[in-house]
Design a protein around this nucleic acid. Sequence first.
DNA 1: GACTCTCTGTACCGATCGGTACAATCTTCC
DNA 2: GGAAGATTGTACCGATCGGTACAGAGAGTC
Lengths: 190, 190
Amino acid sequence: MAKGTIKAASERADLLPLISEVFRSHGYEGATLALIGEATGLGKGSLYHFFPDGKAQMAAEVLAEIDHWFEVNIFAALRKSDDPVRAIAEMTAGVDRYFHSGHRVCLVGVIALGASRDIFAAQVQDYFSRWNDALALALRRAGFSAGVSRRRSADALLTIQGALVLARALDDAKVFGQAMADMKARLLAK
Amino acid sequence: MAKGTIKAASERADLLPLISEVFRSHGYEGATLALIGEATGLGKGSLYHFFPDGKAQMAAEVLAEIDHWFEVNIFAALRKSDDPVRAIAEMTAGVDRYFHSGHRVCLVGVIALGASRDIFAAQVQDYFSRWNDALALALRRAGFSAGVSRRRSADALLTIQGALVLARALDDAKVFGQAMADMKARLLAK
DNA sequence: GACTCTCTGTACCGATCGGTACAATCTTCC
DNA sequence: GGAAGATTGTACCGATCGGTACAGAGAGTC
């Protein structure tokens, strides 16, 4: 086993984060089974044992896992918190953490832009619209009108996505930090 | 010649827009020579006659053409106009036109996010930083401080990119229109 | 008409793609 | 220990990838 990985990840759950990074940095079509095998330390035999439907299943499960992370760590608080201002502050902190302060790219965004979008359109749309709804709800509860809440919510989501694109394009993570600060201020502005 | 295309584009210059759309909708790795041949009505022989270095050259020339379009239609006015407010208004109008009101994706952004980013990093960075500089200059001339100008400029660029991502993810071009209106207001706000 | 140069279609190349088949192994439980 | 199931490596599949070779069509020039 002279592979680059320390140890084959035997648990199925341990596999997804590794596969996730391959999709993230190569896109759906660029993520070959060879790369995935290399990243996980697993051969095709094992990969197809865990994911009988192959690459499409891997991507779908990775997307589901990302969705779950945001659901638990971001959306839930936005929906249920009795302190919406704090929930929004936690959202920006969580987003900054998740995207490694702009060094990590958003897989859902990558897929939305790519050719594979059609295959995962439903999952992608669901992810963003549930985020959008949760954030708008928090803004409503913070006292803003329905229209303002929805407008600001979409603005925040698109700011995050755009900041990731521009930070990567300019190879300058400071762009992301500045954008997050601006976004936060804009969300709760009088 | 039972191809789907009306007529083979004989002029080299006519080829680039067709190839551009293939890269746009399939990404760099997803844009196969078969697809490019189909879109242009040209076989490999012709393709490699016009672009001896193959796919990478095609993408580089497409990027150069996009760069040139923005240089002429957007950046130049931003830099030289004696009416910066009008130049900025023209920029948002031009951007809206270019991206078909949010229905068309930004190829430079797509490449920035993809695995092919490394190959075209210099071109991608140059495109965005020249836009950034030109817009910041216009804002300075409109009376804003250097810091505010640069901050607003980056914000505008990232808003455009994010709006394109979110509009496509939600399959809702209205998101783009709203974001452009917000961006314009924010650029020139007191 | 023959020479040139541009342009094109087609056959082909080795490499790699996603996916399958399957025998060998490792676990687990009795 | 031995049966049963989970897990694995490897060989292999047809298709397609980007790219090359090259013969010949087409157009212009003398």
